[in-house]
Design a protein around this nucleic acid. Structure first.
Length: 399
DNA sequence: TCTGGGGTCCTAGGACCC
DNA sequence: TCTGGGGTCCTAGGACCC
């Protein structure tokens, strides 16, 4: 049976959502009508462009570039901080709308969903018409726009939604790829990033059509599995399914860019402890145990290095994770001036009643009680109630 | 007034085992 | 005393996505 996929992508999501929220709260200025960006706090060295208005884009401002560069391109650009809670709320509302069309909705990111409507359409319904209906409904209800990609292949639907923006619906059926996809430069291809472009170019691959028609085994020889994947995508044969059942995370991590470079391990350990608190809390909220702990540092030259280790016993306690993280930090730290510290737990496994006995040891139950008490404080007063050393530090820095 | 943060997947090399 | 080969596990690093 012919498959029926939609990919729906919010146009300039963080910027649009912030703009709509501000209008709702009585603001007269629509950020979408001026050169504006969502950006981080420069005094805390988070000064990058997270999202931009279409007008900002016309000035050549790019996502992820430093704000000072954006200002150089457009001195009058308005920079606004983001609000993740607002974004989460709009994302949830969208998801609810999509679920009225099919239960097969995959939340690919906070502002993108895949819908599988195969077998969900009545005989008189048409996939494109449904796409238009969804698009118009969102615009009317919320006041922001989306792009809709329509295809009989999941990845082609995603590529289609990336065509001309905003507020557009595009089809890219397998039968249309020669005409609509293959003439585009290979740099436009989903999953082809800036490291792969020159490598592909060196093989004579300039367009997506070149990629699709390139010798498969030669691509595999040069790029391994990755080569096979992008070759399939370019030929419209991803054959991927919409993963509508929410998967458990495989790893959980937090990282922190320090407001100033730190060249001293005891100061790093303070930050490390804060990050472990956060990561361990999120791990417990997922009802999972970690089997691997990873610590990452970035030095003042932006060189990233990391160490990880497998734990002897799976755990979800702050204490165990901190112990491992400290050991890793100590073997990792070489005296560099450090810009960023990160902590991740990996190899996550779901909690099962079975192993309770191992964790009922006196020492463990004590740690558990501490963690539970802290977690209750977090639930009650918000995450910031415990461990505020990071904030105190940056406040001092602001003075 | 220099470059965020959260993820997933893959690869290469070494250790270790049979 | 010149040394294969297959397999698994672990670690470090990198590419890509939003």
């Amino acid at each position: 049976m012919e498959r029926k996929f939609l990919h729906i992508d919010v146009n300039n999501a963080f910027l649009s959502w912030t703009a709509v929220e501000r209008l709702k709260n009585g603001d007269k200025l629509d950020l979408r009508t001026i050169p504006s960006v969502i950006g981080g706090d420069e005094s805390k060295r988070r000064g990058i462009v997270v999202a931009k208005s279409n007008i900002a884009k016309k000035f050549g401002i790019k996502t992820a570039e430093p704000l000072y560069m954006a200002r150089r391109k457009c001195p009058s650009v308005v920079v606004v901080h983001g609000d993740y809670d607002v974004y989460k709320r709009y994302s949830d509302e969208l998801y609810k709308i999509f679920l009225t069309y099919t239960e097969k909705v995959e939340r690919f990111s906070i502002d993108e969903c895949f819908l599988d409507l195969t077998g969900y359409l009545k005989p008189n319904e048409d996939l494109v018409k449904i796409g238009i209906e969804i698009k118009e409904k969102i615009k009317k209800k919320f006041g922001f726009t989306v792009n809709v990609g329509v295809s009989d292949d999941k990845i082609l639907a995603k590529i289609a939604s990336d065509f001309e923006k905003p507020d557009k619906l595009h089809t890219l059926f397998k039968s249309e790829i020669e005409e609509k996809l293959w003439n585009l430069p290979v740099s436009e291809m989903f999953m082809v990033g800036k490291k792969s472009i020159p490598k592909l170019n060196r093989l004579g691959i300039k367009t997506i059509g070149d990629l699709a028609n390139f010798d498969k085994s030669l691509l595999i020889k040069n790029f391994g599995k990755y080569g096979y994947m992008i070759w399939k995508y370019a030929n419209g044969n991803s054959n991927e399914e919409v993963n509508y059942i929410k998967e458990k995370p495989k790893g959980i991590g937090n990282s922190y860019t320090l407001p100033y470079d730190v060249g001293n391990i005891s100061e790093l350990e303070v930050i490390l402890a804060q990050l472990v608190e956060k990561v361990a809390y999120r791990l417990r909220k997922e009802d999972m145990y970690a089997t691997v702990v990873n610590v990452q540092l970035k030095n003042n030259n932006f060189k990233v290095f990391s160490h990880q280790k497998k734990l002897d016993v799976r755990t979800d306690t702050t204490k165990d994770i901190l112990k491992a993280a400290k050991e890793l930090l100590n073997e990792l730290y070489n005296g560099d001036f450090i810009r960023l510290v990160g902590v991740r737990v990996d190899g996550l496994v779901e909690k099962k009643e079975m192993q309770l006995s191992i964790f009922d040891m006196p020492e463990n139950s004590k740690n558990k009680k501490i963690d539970e008490a802290m977690d209750r404080l977090r639930e009650k007063f918000g995450e910031d109630i415990v461990g505020r050393a990071i904030d105190i530090k940056s406040n001092i820095d602001d003075k």
